[in-house]
Design a protein around this nucleic acid. Structure first.
Length: 220
DNA sequence: CTCCCGATAT
DNA sequence: ATATCAGGAG
C-alpha cells in the first residue's frame, strides 16, 4: 500500500499527464448522460458515442423511448452489446422517471440507484458530471489502476475501492482525480499492454516493478 | 457466482 | 482465438 506522500505524487503526476481529463461520453443534458452511461457497460466510449450520435437525434425525451416497441429500441442499440438488457432497462427507466419523478431526473445518488440498470458506478458518474457533486465512480479502469499502483488492496471489492479512494483523496479533488484515473488506465496503464517503461509512476508502482523485472531485455 | 453480448485490439 | 470494454441484476 502506498503512503500518503506517494498518493500525492500519483495525483500530481496524473495531473501532468492528463490535465484535461474529462467525461468522454458525448451528451448535451443529464438525461442523455444517464442513457449514455447505461449503454456503456462492458463497451467502449467510442462505440457508445457512435451509437448515441444517431440515437439522440431520434429520442429526445423519456416519452420518445416509450413510443417505440422494445424490438425497435433493441435494433437501434444492437451494436453496443448486452442490448436486450439495456433496451429493457432504458424503457423501464423512462417509465419510472415519468411516473415517480415527474419527468425529471433525480439529482440524488441514492435515488438514481433506484432506476433500473443504474448501479452505484453509473449514479456516481451522473451526479459528478451532470450535477457537480463530488464522487468517485469506480469502473474497470479505476479499479485496475488503483490496485496496480497500490492505492487500495488487491482483494478490495469495487465498493471498498471507492471508499478507500474517498478516504485517501481530498474531497475537492474527487471528480477530477476520477477522470484522471480513467484516462491513465485507458491510455497509459492499459489492461493488456501497460506502458510501464515510460511510466512516471514506475518507481512507486509495485506491479510495474514486478512486470519490468519479469520482462528484462538482457540475456546475460 | 452467472448471465447478458457486439466491436475491437492483441 | 482470446481479452477487454466507463456494469448491473438475479
Amino acid at each position: 500500500m502506498l503512503n500518503n506522500t506517494q498518493i500525492r505524487y500519483c495525483l500530481d503526476q496524473m495531473g501532468e499527464m492528463f490535465p484535461d481529463a474529462h467525461c468522454e461520453l458525448i451528451h448535451s443534458n443529464p438525461f442523455e448522460l444517464i442513457i449514455a452511461v447505461s449503454l456503456s457497460a462492458q463497451c467502449t466510449d467510442a462505440l457508445v458515442n457512435k451509437v448515441t450520435k444517431e440515437l439522440f437525434k431520434k429520442y429526445k425525451t423519456p416519452e420518445d423511448y416509450l413510443r417505440v416497441p422494445l424490438e425497435e429500441l433493441q435494433t437501434d442499440i444492437r451494436s453496443i452489446g448486452l442490448y436486450r438488457n439495456k433496451a429493457k432497462n432504458i424503457q423501464s427507466l423512462c417509465r419510472m422517471i415519468l411516473d415517480d419523478y415527474n419527468g425529471e431526473l433525480p439529482k440524488d445518488r441514492d435515488e438514481l440507484t433506484k432506476l433500473p440498470g443504474v448501479g452505484r458506478k453509473t449514479a456516481n458518474v451522473v451526479v459528478s458530471v451532470a450535477f457537480d457533486v463530488p464522487a468517485i465512480a469506480v469502473d474497470t479502469h479505476v479499479e485496475r489502476v488503483s490496485k496496480r499502483l497500490g492505492i487500495c488492496r488487491w482483494k478490495d471489492s469495487v465498493l471498498e475501492v471507492e471508499k478507500t479512494l474517498m478516504k485517501r483523496i481530498p474531497k475537492d479533488e474527487w471528480s477530477v482525480t476520477h477522470h484522471r484515473l480513467i484516462f491513465f488506465g485507458r491510455y497509459h496503464c492499459k489492461a493488456q499492454n501497460p506502458q510501464c517503461p515510460s511510466c512516471p509512476l514506475l518507481e512507486i508502482c509495485r506491479e510495474g516493478k514486478k512486470r519490468m523485472k519479469g520482462s528484462a531485455v538482457s540475456h546475460g
